[in-house]
Structure formats: structure tokens, C-alpha cells
Nucleic acid binder design. Structure first.
Lengths: 341, 341
DNA sequence: AGCTATTTCGCAACCGGTTTCGTAAATAAA
DNA sequence: TTTATTTACGAAACCGGTTGCGAAATAGCT
């Protein structure tokens, strides 16, 4: 049995195809009476209109794409929830794509969107993204793009970020206030906007305390946990070792804890640790982990909401506005030594 | 400027629309020479065929749906990676939908798929799913469905699970071998297949040791962390309190650790803890957490692979096969007291 | 009643590819 | 050279809705 089409529905009702179609677009041309009749029959036959036929004619897909580096990180997991929640509200569908931090894959994914597959794109750029021409191509084709979390700052469109610089500042200040004299900053990338901004904030805070950031305290880690553990161990074995560590991404936390364990160093006595993290296990780590927690769900929602705004006014000119959803610093034992609820 | 269409491309080349189309389907009817010419021009003009026009005519969307309870859990996050990796390999696109554990939302989502939006469905059923008629509807329409992780055992289609029962047995046995006399089993749902199976395994292991499971040692938790903390505290304050706890889902772990902290009970001395979890922080918890780790990535891949198999042979009859990807028990301090790497 | 305005619906073109079929030219077989 | 095949391409129908426009039916008005 072929899926029932609108044509079939029309024949069943003794109406024309166009009349039935107009019922579904809720056209004023159709009387309330026949609308009811059609809707009733549709429900009875379990009819669902073919979205692709509609997309073809209307040149709208009612679909957005979410392009992410990966979903291993708990930030993106939660962000997806936020995105999905408002997409569903608007009756949109969500396609998901992973770049695995590869620039060429990111380009290939966006290139496919030239086809009209999606009406808009939400993107958190990959680690290796060096330019934004693929993004601009999208927008020139009339497909709005909204950045979230990992943004391209030069690109003229809406950006949703958290207050990365401010958070970096706060994290550093928090360490200093808890007695740290020398702070190391762990990062995965020097090019990513969020990393740069967090580091900038760190530098600012140090400067405010008349300290300057030593360049060898900027530690570039890899995406392999085992390597990071070694890298951090070496950091902690230096004679001028830091007494405070900022892990600028969630996945570096484990390396710090394990390195300390290996070296029999005690957090926070020997070294204090603060991490940019959304992990729900932060309170039950030992010691519990002081975190800068990003508002992942809210950022997801804000990003989707902004995209739908840009979708509505379909001019090609989007204002390069940056919406900032602030992170919160949650102090715990790893910096304060103080145990709390 | 309208997006360039195949018709435009054809005109540009002085060829007919159908000829150009046949180039893209790599038809034998077209000479190698003109194929090259068309492809070259297509690349030059940056032409990407409209997927919806193609879907409409071919009655294939090259798209699959992934229906999940939520992505807050790290299991699903990683599973998505597995799914996406093989979908991309096959040239398929991935739509994602969240049920938020609501049965009616799950039904509504699947009902939409009657439209032909997707060629196949990967689903992990919601907590509240009580029957499988919506799944069967899908399959009768010729849309294959593959379960993963949270399956419906009665439904006649492919299922990807981990060895839940065996793992429940192993977890229990592990606790017993480490000296536990009385074991509590924390769960979120009594209806979910995975919970039931894990519990069954637990019962089996106890029986093998000539112990029987006390019904009040089955503790039903909620999805609110604060409540769970209290529930677990009450459990640990009973005079016949357990000396071993199995958390059958990841998100219950925090409750156990916090409850113990509140009561000044020491893991593993006072109570040993094992958790079904994929959290990367397990090794750095204090004490480090013994886990049963599900092979999330492999399950995602297996599920997608199975779906594509069912997609290929497009008969409506799918064999109700269950593919089991085994979990691994990683012993750590929370049960053994022994510190390791 | 006569005439215009409004409501309600059907016809047909259209969205952008896909595919069947027909045909002219090129090649092979007789 | 004639006939049978094969090769290479174009015309047109089609997938399943959407929409502009025209026409019939009804309502409103003098």
C-alpha cells in the first residue's frame, strides 16, 4: 500500500486537490464546514503531508542544522537539549552534524547546505577553523548562521557566547584570593575564541594584581587524555611550578587530578584547581571541584531563538550582535579547601 | 539570485535537463565525455542538487531519525557519535528528537514519520513507553526501526543492547566477592527493559550465593537529584542498611556519594558502590568509582549499521534479532578499596 | 429583478529533480 | 549495401504538495 497522498484524500472526499491543500494551509478561501470535513477524514486516514513536497514548492525546509565539533563534551549534550526544545516549539526539525574538529569536514558539511536542505545553521566552529568564508557563503545564499560558544568574531552575524573573558578573570582572581602566587592555564587550542578570551581574562586579572603571566605557564594540551596527564605532571614537577591551575576545558580536569595523584600532591594544599566544566560530578570529586559552569541549556535556547529571529526577517543583513549568557563560578574544595553541602 | 538549479546548469551547457540529471545518477546512458563536461561545470558553478526534489521523486530521504529520551546522559552523547560516524559514511543525514521520557511525545514524533521524512528510525524508548503500537505502525509503513539500549523486547525488529542481565550479575557478584552481605539496587524505572534486566541479573547472582533479594532493597529513585540524595540517605540509615549499592543508572551516582558524605559514611569501608556509568570522571572521584561501562560508541555504530542493513533489504519483515555488545566492569576503589593507576 | 461584491472551490502551472520511452546517429552484423 | 544493434541524448510524465487565477455560487444592495 502506497502511503496515502493528498490526492487520495481529495478523491476520497470528492474534493479537488487544491481545496484539500488549502485546508492544510488554513486558507481563508475554504469554508469552515469543508475544513472540518477534510480534517476529520485526514485524521481518520492517518494522513500526514509529505514534508519534502512542501519544502520543494515553498523553498523552506522547516529544518535547521546544528554543527558541532563533537558531543562527547557535556556542554554540547546539554546545549542540544536547549536547541531541540525551542526548535520543537517552532515546529522545526534538527539535523545534527559533527566536525570532529576538522576544518575540511566543517566546510564539506556547510557546502552541502547550499542545496537548501536547511533553513538555518547553528554552529560551534571546529578547533581547526581558520577562516570564515564557508560561513559567509551560507549567509550570502540567504541561509542565516548563528554561532554559539565557539564563535568567529570577525563574522557579521549573531553570536551566543558566555562571558569567557570575564570568567577567565574571575577564575584567576578566585585563585589569587585563595592564596595562589603562580597560575598555570591549560588549554587545547590557541586559536579558538573561547580559549583566547579565557586566557585574556586570566592575564587581565594577573595584571590587576601587578603580576604578569609567564608564557611557559600557558600549557597546550592535546585531545589524548594519557598525554595530558604526562604534560601536567611535567608542569607540576617544574621547580617554578604553579600553585594554581585553570583547566580551560572540561576534559582537562581528569588529567590534573590524576597527575596530582601520581605525584602525591594534594589538592588544594599543594595546588589549587579550577575548571571550566559542566560535569555533574564536580561536587563528588575528591576534593570537590571548583568550576566555572557554562549555562549550556540557556545558550542552546538562546542560539536557537536568535536563529529563528534571523529566519523571520529574511533579509541577508544580520546584525553582528553578541549575546552573552553569563557563566557562574561555583567555589568548592579544590580551591577553597572548605567543604560545603 | 536564486540558487542555481539543474535546469540552469543544463541551459548553461546546452544540454537537456534529463541528460544532466543522468550524469548525477551516473547513468550508463551518458558518454564519459559529457559526464566530465557536466561535472566540471557543476563544480565551477558550485552546484548542489536539491535533496528534497530528489527525495520526492525517489521516495527516499537519505535521512534517519534518532529518537532519544534526552542527551544529558553521557551514554547517549557518545552513542550519537557512533551513529553519526556511520551515517556519514553511508551518506545519510541524522535528525534528532528528544522525548524527555514522555510517551505521548514519543508517539507524536513517530507519527510525523508517517510522512516519509525519514527512511529509518533508531530509538531508545522513553521511560513511560508502555506499548509498541507506534513502533509497529512505522514498520508496517515500510520504515525500519532499530532499538538500541532501551528496547521493547516484544517488538519484532533488531535490538542493540549491552549484556544488561549479565552485567547486573557481575556487578552483584563483584560486591559479594568484596565482602558485601546485603545489596541495594537503585533504579529509576521498574518498567524499562534495561533496569529490569540488570535487576534480574542481580537477583540471579544473589540466588547463586544462596541469598535472596529483599524487596525493600530495590530503591526506586526519581529524576530529581535532591530527592534521590534524601532517598539514599534514608536507605543508609535503616537498621538493616545495605553494605553494597548498585546504581543502575549513571545519574544516581552523585546521590550515593553525597548521601554518604552527609552521613559521614566512608566508601568503601561502610558501604561499597558500583555504578552503571560512562562518566569519564569515574577514576577521579573519591574514592574512584567502580563502574560497569557500556560501550556507547560501539552500540551507536552497531545500531546504525543494523538499521542500514534493514534499509537495504526493504522487505517489511525484520528478524527480531538481538545484538549484544558487552559492557565491561572496571573495578576501582569504591568497591575494592584498592588504589590503581 | 438586476447588478455588483463576496465566498468557495477547481484548474493548471509550478517547485527541482528522476525516470520511462522514443529517436537519431553510430556501429556491428549479415 | 542493407538490416539489426547499440550508443547518446531529449521530450514528457511524474513525485506530492502549493498557489495564482478564473468561475460558479451565494450574498448584498438599489
Amino acid at each position: 500500500m502506497p502511503n496515502i497522498s493528498m490526492k487520495l484524500l481529495a478523491k476520497e472526499l470528492g474534493l479537488s486537490l487544491s481545496t484539500v491543500s488549502k485546508v492544510f494551509t488554513d486558507s481563508h478561501e475554504i469554508s469552515e464546514q469543508t475544513k472540518q470535513k477534510v480534517l476529520a477524514m485526514a485524521k481518520q486516514l492517518n494522513y500526514v503531508p509529505n514534508p519534502y513536497a512542501s519544502s520543494l514548492r515553498k523553498r523552506k525546509s522547516k529544518t535547521i542544522a546544528v554543527v558541532l565539533p563533537e558531543v562527547a563534551d557535556s556542554f554540547f549534550s546539554v546545549a542540544i537539549n536547549g536547541i531541540e526544545s525551542i526548535a520543537r516549539e517552532k515546529g522545526y526539525h534538527v539535523l545534527i552534524y559533527l566536525t570532529h574538529e576538522l576544518f575540511d569536514r566543517e566546510q564539506a558539511i556547510l557546502a552541502d547546505f547550499q542545496s537548501g536542505r536547511v533553513d538555518g545553521v547553528l554552529i560551534s566552529v571546529s578547533n581547526g577553523t581558520t577562516n570564515d568564508s564557508h560561513i559567509n557563503d551560507m549567509m550570502q545564499r540567504g541561509i542565516p548562521v548563528v554561532f554559539f560558544d565557539r564563535v568567529c568574531e570577525e563574522t557579521a552575524t549573531t553570536r551566543i557566547t558566555t562571558n569567557d573573558r570575564e570568567s577567565g578573570r574571575l577564575a584567576t582572581q578566585h585563585l589569587l584570593e585563595n592564596g595562589c602566587k603562580r597560575i598555570a592555564f591549560l588549554t587545547l587550542s590557541e586559536s579558538l575564541s573561547i580559549s583566547r578570551n579565557r586566557l585574556d581574562g586570566c592575564r587581565q586579572a594577573l595584571a590587576a594584581h601587578r603580576l604578569i603571566f609567564q608564557e611557559n605557564d600557558l600549557v597546550l594540551c592535546t585531545d589524548k587524555d594519557a598525554d595530558n596527564r604526562d604534560i601536567i605532571k611535567r608542569l607540576l614537577q617544574r621547580k617554578d611550578r604553579p600553585d594554581g591551575i585553570i583547566a580551560s576545558v572540561e576534559k582537562l580536569t581528569a588529567g590534573v587530578y590524576l597527575a596530582c595523584r601520581d605525584l602525591k600532591m594534594v589538592i588544594p594544599k599543594d595546588v589549587k584547581v579550577i575548571s571550566f566544566s559542566n560535569q555533574s560530578t564536580a561536587p563528588i570529586l575528591n576534593p570537590s571541584l571548583t568550576t566555572i559552569t557554562q549555562p549550556a541549556f540557556e545558550m542552546g535556547k538562546a542560539a536557537a531563538a536568535a536563529l529563528f529571529n534571523n529566519l523571520k526577517r529574511n533579509n541577508q543583513q544580520y546584525k553582528p550582535e553578541t549575546i552573552v549568557v553569563p557563566s557562574v563560578l561555583v567555589p568548592r574544595e579544590s580551591t577553597t579547601g572548605v567543604h560545603q553541602g
